[in-house]
Design a protein around this nucleic acid. Structure first.
Length: 546
RNA sequence: GGCCCCAUCGUCUAGGUAGGUCCAGGACACCGGGUUUUCAACCCGGCAACAGGGGUUCGAAUCCCCUUGGGGCUACCA
């Protein structure tokens, strides 16, 4: 009888939840759910400089949007709290003292500059840097002295140097690090906070974590963490899994930096930008903008987003919210992320959370890095939109419309459901919004797409056809889809043309673009009065140009 | 530079832990055709891979070694 599985997702609150983090969270969650275990959310906020105040909330919102709910953690509590590391300092101090007392850790007084110099020297000798442990550990009075001199005090863990260290990874097997390969590392910073490598070990122990599933970028930390665990605790180590990294199509790890990078490229590519206006849009100073363009500084996320919108530049989606704003469903994200480095072993691809949970198995994790392919993601979204029940899709659509502030949001549920059904084949929620938008604009808010006007109104007698259609519509007593369809089809026979020749001018007249809901429904839903008004406006506006 | 991980179609991957049933299967993308009132969706067909070199073996995508290539880490960040 094996013990109950306990996993955890331990983000540092430095910003929004990004796809890499979401995937880590998902795999941890899936394993816990699959085995009837517990999934813990722990916030690793031990870096005072990097934490953003709202990040924890954002991360939690995004996890919930994905359907990943934690059993223990912030807002839900649990027996192993608190779940914010910044509230656990006393606990860490206790263990640091223990290590110090047992001579397994020691004080250091080096400055950053001194350490940098040592590192440089090691590199120039083509050796890996390893902190050289003092023969005798400084005592309390040394600490007082150093403090009096204004020196920073840190604590280092004395890593056993005489034996090789072996990390047993569930998917990768045993990984050996040579004796002495892991140098003494800092476990307490000069501000009194523990480092990640320390707090993580203590909390994994206290929270009884059985499986640590994390990115491959943590593999090199593991031997040190294991050594720490053994120095502190007698119970067996948790099991480790280091997942492959998700790489970007631009090469390298998929990173939040890609958005600012893309924006910078976009700014440079355009010659005629009003930089002052741009800075103002992002609510930053022209100097800040300048240093951003030169690659020296990094504005915050709202500034990046605002400037991108101002320029009409599409930034790659990296954060989970980016995908939400691009009209992706949470079901899509969870499905796609799960298949990045894992598969169920048969040819199934489109799966919902329940199916993923049922099929999940650590032994089916892939070792190789995988590339985040947005085109496949789009295909997945198309599938999920197709298979999601309209009522559920309605909820997703509402949330989307609300955040993008769409006029379509004013529609009643019943109408929105009808629209959803008419949008069969949509790839994202953006498609649905775009196709139905014209129904919720005032007549004078219609913007004409130049290309559409040229192609369907100013060519092939578009305006003439539109005039005929207008009169037939005006003459109608009933204004149902069927009557409208009959009339238009009848016209195609008279004129011996395809329906496109007749429908498209009408579509452009009422929508301003060539893309909308199916034409009969479009006209019927808009209603006779507005349809005629829009046609008249169109005829008047473009008659002169013809 | 050092340490560590990885390597099947353009991409995600199946197959590799019991070597033959794999002249390598699926999906996305792409190409060609069809359907069509727009955008999509949909239907049919097609292209396309075991990184290279050595072993082991009757036989290797599957096991071993080297090379090459990609990635990660190298902080008083996590």
């Amino acid at each position: 009888m094996s013990e109950k599985v306990v996993t955890r997702f331990a983000p540092s609150p430095t910003g929004y939840l990004h796809v890499g983090g979401a995937r880590t969270a998902l795999f941890n969650w899936l394993l816990a759910k699959r085995t009837g275990g517990t999934f813990i959310l722990r916030i690793e906020d031990t870096d005072q400089k990097r934490n953003t105040p709202t990040a924890t909330q954002q991360v939690m919102d995004d996890l919930r949007w994905l359907g990943i709910q934690w059993d223990e953690g912030p807002e839900v509590g649990g027996p192993n709290g608190p779940y914010l590391q910044s509230q656990r300092i006393d606990i860490y101090n206790k263990y640091i003292k223990k290590l110090l007392d047992e001579q397994k850790a020691y004080y250091c007084f080096d400055t950053t500059e001194e350490l940098d110099a040592l590192r440089k020297e090691a590199e120039s000798q083509k050796k890996s840097f390893s902190y050289s442990r003092p023969k005798e550990f400084p005592n309390e009075s040394d600490v007082e002295k150093a403090k009096a001199q204004g020196r920073d005090v840190t604590v280092r863990f004395a890593v056993p140097q005489d034996v090789p260290m072996v990390v047993a990874d569930i998917v990768r097997g045993e990984i050996t690090f040579a004796a002495g390969a892991i140098g003494d590392f800092i476990i307490q910073k000069s501000d009194g906070f523990p480092t990640y490598n320390f707090a993580c070990v203590v909390d994994d122990y206290l929270m009884k974590i059985t499986h640590v599933i994390r990115g491959q970028e943590h593999l090199n930390n593991t031997p040190g963490q294991q050594a720490l665990w053994r120095a502190l605790f007698s119970s067996p180590l948790p099991k480790y899994v280091h997942m492959s990294v998700t790489v970007s199509d631009t090469g390298g790890k998929l990173s939040k930096r890609e958005r600012p990078k893309t924006l910078r490229t976009a700014i440079k590519a355009k010659q005629d930008i009003d930089l002052e206006k741009l800075a103002e849009t992002g609510n930053i100073t022209p100097e800040q903008l300048d240093s951003f363009i030169k690659g020296k500084a990094m504005p915050d996320i709202p500034a990046i987003d605002a400037m991108a919108e101002y320029l009409g530049a599409a930034l790659p989606e990296i954060n989970i919210v980016d995908f939400f704003k691009s009209g992706y469903l949470p079901e899509t994200m969870v499905n796609f992320l799960a298949l990045l480095g894992w598969n169920p072993g048969d040819n199934r691809e489109i799966m919902v959370l329940d199916e993923l949970t049922e099929s999940f198995d650590l032994s089916r994790l892939t070792k190789a890095n995988s590339l985040f392919d947005r085109r496949k993601l789009l295909a997945f979204n198309t599938e999920h939109i197709k298979m999601t029940p309209p009522e559920k899709l309605l909820q997703h659509l509402r949330a989307y419309l609300k955040t993008v502030n769409s006029p379509v949001n004013s529609a009643e549920d019943e109408l929105l459901l009808k629209i959803i059904k008419l949008c069969e084949g949509a790839r994202t929620l953006v498609d649905i919004e775009r196709k139905s938008r014209f129904l919720f604009l005032d007549n004078d808010e219609i913007e004409y797409d130049n290309k559409a006007v040229k192609k369907v109104l100013l060519k092939n007698d578009g305006l003439a056809v539109l005039t005929i259609v207008r009169d037939k519509l005006a003459a109608m007593e009933q204004f149902t889809e069927q009557v409208i369809e009959d009339m238009l089809r009848c016209l195609t026979e008279e004129k011996q043309v395809g329906l496109g020749k007749i429908a498209q001018p009408l579509r452009v007249a009422i929508c301003g673009t060539t893309v909308s809901l199916p034409i009969f429904e479009s006209v019927q839903m808009l209603g006779k009065k507005d349809t005629l008004t829009r046609i008249d406006t169109t005829l008047k506006k473009f008659a002169a140009e013809n």
